[in-house]
């Protein structure tokens, strides 16, 4: 009856907002964790879209791991709530998520394979999948050795293997390249990109900006438990930009540009001027303006803003 009424009066049964929520893998609502007076996480509101590589950025001790700990069920939030797959905080959700939290965790006296068997059993994943993930993380040859004999890099890879068991829809990786050598870091990065291309959602917590910039499509920046910025990497990097100008008469350029609309700051760095301008100002406009004032520059280029600078700016 209700359905019929709805269709008669053209009321959409699925409200636009709920429809949008179907594309959200994880959402948190005023998620808060206090340890006494210390506010580890403060009213965090996050929406992590499906099929993104979502970077959770923040300095050490900013609340990244506490946040992940809460959404993964090992830390009780002081207040607030979270929801995976629009299915609330049900324990069963975690079987659809492969996670690494902080250090690699294993039974040291068990072999890599035996450890994965336990993880597979918990996740209701067929033991046949173990061989596949061992090959992905290149530990198949060492599968019979006790986990305590593994190097840190191997342990990291083993936990990545455990996270990949059962081909989960979402991967949660907390500092996955910690303790790896450059080659290992490149491998993990390659693996993340490969997994991301299969349409999986990856949530990556890191303080390594370079890492996040290279693999993430979206980021959230948190500091002291507060969300400072959230959006796509392009959006976050957006803002003011810097233009480098080199020429013979720098003093004249400074005096000309200091009155130019949209220029915010000029700094002289030896033979180069660093000009901070509004985001929509192109170097060609500046070049043209200088030419009109009969000054030709030898060098003009946009200095690409790195996530690192933006991050330091946001968290300052």
């Amino acid at each position: 009856m209700f359905n019929i009424l709805c269709s008669i009066f053209f009321i959409p049964l699925v409200l636009p907002q709920t429809y949008q929520n179907l594309d959200i893998v994880l959402s948190t609502e005023v998620l808060t964790k206090h340890y006494g007076v210390i506010k580890a996480v403060n009213s965090l509101k996050l929406n992590i879209p499906k099929q993104t590589v979502f970077g959770l950025l923040g300095p050490n001790g900013s609340g990244k791991t506490t946040t992940l700990g809460m959404v993964l069920g090992i830390i009780h939030p002081t207040t607030g709530s979270f929801s995976w797959f629009n299915n609330g905080s049900n324990d069963i959700n975690r079987k659809r998520i492969g996670s690494i939290l902080e250090h690699p965790i294993f039974y040291p006296y068990l072999s890599g394979e035996q450890n994965l068997k336990i993880a597979a059993k918990i996740k209701d994943v067929n033991e046949k999948d173990i061989e596949r993930v061992l090959n992905i993380v290149e530990l198949y040859d060492r599968r019979k050795s006790a986990a305590k004999t593994y190097s840190l890099g191997m342990k990291q890879r083993l936990s990545l293997g455990a996270a990949l068991l059962g081909d989960p829809e979402v991967l949660v990786l907390d500092e996955p390249t910690n303790g790896l050598d450059p080659q290992g870091i490149a491998e993990v990065r390659g693996l993340i990109n490969k997994v991301a291309q299969t349409g999986k959602t990856i949530i990556l917590a890191s303080h390594l900006l370079d890492e996040v910039e290279k693999v993430c499509s979206h980021v959230a920046v948190i500091k002291n438990g507060n969300l400072l910025a959230e959006g796509s990497v392009a959006e976050i990097i957006k803002g003011d930009k810097q233009i480098e100008i080199g020429g013979s008469d720098l003093q004249k350029i400074i005096s000309l540009l200091s009155t130019f609309n949209g220029v915010k700051n000029i700094v002289q760095d030896k033979e180069i001027l660093l000009i901070t301008v509004h985001d929509d100002i192109l170097p060609s406009v500046i070049n043209k303006y200088l030419l009109e004032n009969s000054i030709s520059v030898e060098h003009i280029t946009v200095r690409k803003k790195r996530l690192e600078e933006q991050f330091l700016e946001i968290t300052a």
Partner: peptide, 10 residues
């Protein structure tokens, strides 16, 4: 800390 991992795993 395997109790953590057991819970994280589901």
């Amino acid at each position: 800390r395997t109790i953590r991992q057991n819970i994280i795993d589901g």
